[in-house]
C-alpha cells in the first residue's frame, strides 16, 4: 500500500545553494511566529469556549470593554510584518532576484525549455554562446543552434542533465520555445518561470556536490510531470574534465558526419 521508498517527511529538504540558508532562516522564523500566534489564539479560544459556555444562571454581558485594546494585535502584526519586509524581505529578494553575480566570474548557461524537456546550452571553453535561430530548429537541433557561427563550435547542448561547478555561481538565462515552464530545484530554494518570447534569469551558487532534481513547476501540458532533469554539482576539476570530454565528443561526431550536417540544418 505504501511503497518502501515513500516517506512521511516534514520540514525542508537539504539546502544546497549559497542563499538557501537565508531563505530557510526566514522560513523558520515565519513558521515559529505563525505557530506562536496560532497557539496563543487557540488557547484563548478554548478558554472562552469553556469559561463562557451557556449554563444555568449564566448570561451574556452587554457592555464591551477593550475595544481599543483589540487594535494591539493588529498593530503588532503590522509592525512585525513591516520589520520582516524591511529587514529581510527586500534585502534577500534583492540578493536572489534583483542582482546577479558578474557573468565574467560565473558559469553561464542558457536553458531553452520545451514541452517536455530542458535543453541546456553551454558556451563551452570559449565562453561564447553560438547564435540560435528558431528557423534552424529540427529534430536533431532542438535549440536551433547555428553551427556556422564560430562561437558555436565548442558549444555543448544537453537535454535534462545539467552540470555545474562547485564554488562558482551559475547564471541561467532561460527562455521557452512553446508554453510557460518553471525551472525549479527545491534544494536551491529558487524557481523561475520560463516564458516564451522573454528571457528570464536565475542564478545559484551550489554549496554541495551531488545530484539535485530539476522539476517543472508550472503546468505545461500532458508531460508536465515528466519534465524533470538533474543538476550535477561537480568539483571544478570534474567539471573541466566533463566539459573537455563533451567538446571532444562533439568534435568527433561532427568530423564523422562530415560537411553534410550544417547544410542539412539549413534546409
Amino acid at each position: 500500500m505504501i511503497k518502501e521508498d515513500w516517506g512521511f517527511q516534514t520540514g525542508l529538504p537539504e539546502a544546497a545553494s549559497s542563499y538557501a540558508p537565508n531563505i530557510d532562516w526566514l522560513m523558520n522564523v515565519l513558521h515559529v511566529v505563525m505557530i506562536g500566534i496560532f497557539v496563543v489564539w487557540g488557547v484563548y479560544f478554548i478558554y472562552c469556549l469553556v469559561a463562557y459556555r451557556a449554563r444555568d444562571g449564566h448570561t451574556g454581558t452587554y457592555h464591551q470593554t477593550g475595544e481599543k485594546a483589540s487594535f494591539i494585535p493588529d498593530g503588532l502584526i503590522l509592525a512585525f510584518e513591516m520589520w520582516l519586509i524591511l529587514a529581510f524581505g527586500i534585502p534577500i529578494w534583492a540578493s536572489v532576484k534583483q542582482s546577479t553575480p558578474p557573468p565574467s566570474e560565473s558559469n553561464n548557461i542558457h536553458v531553452i525549455a520545451q514541452q517536455f524537456a530542458w535543453n541546456i546550452h553551454y558556451p563551452g571553453p570559449d565562453g561564447k554562446f553560438g547564435r540560435r535561430d528558431v528557423k534552424l530548429v529540427s529534430a536533431s537541433n532542438s535549440i536551433g543552434l547555428d553551427e556556422s557561427d564560430p562561437a558555436s563550435k565548442d558549444d555543448i547542448v544537453t537535454i535534462n542533465q545539467m552540470s555545474v561547478p562547485l564554488g562558482k555561481p551559475t547564471i541561467l538565462q532561460m527562455t521557452s520555445k512553446d508554453v510557460i515552464h518553471d525551472f525549479w530545484v527545491s534544494n536551491f530554494r529558487n524557481k523561475q518561470d520560463v516564458v516564451p518570447g522573454l528571457n528570464t534569469n536565475l542564478w545559484f551558487e551550489p554549496t554541495k556536490t551531488g545530484k539535485f532534481e530539476i522539476a517543472c513547476a508550472q503546468l505545461c501540458g500532458l508531460g508536465h510531470t515528466q519534465m524533470v532533469g538533474n543538476v550535477f554539482v561537480k568539483t571544478p576539476e570534474e567539471f573541466d574534465e566533463w566539459q573537455k570530454s563533451q567538446v571532444a565528443e562533439k568534435a568527433g561526431t561532427a568530423s564523422a558526419a562530415g560537411a553534410v550536417a550544417p547544410s542539412e540544418n539549413r534546409s
Binding site: N22, I23, L26, I92, K97, S186, R189, K191
Partner: peptide, 9 residues
C-alpha cells in the same frame, strides 16, 4: 512574502 515564496510557490 517574496523570498519564502521562491521556495513555496
Amino acid at each position: 512574502f517574496a523570498p519564502t515564496d521562491l521556495h513555496l510557490h
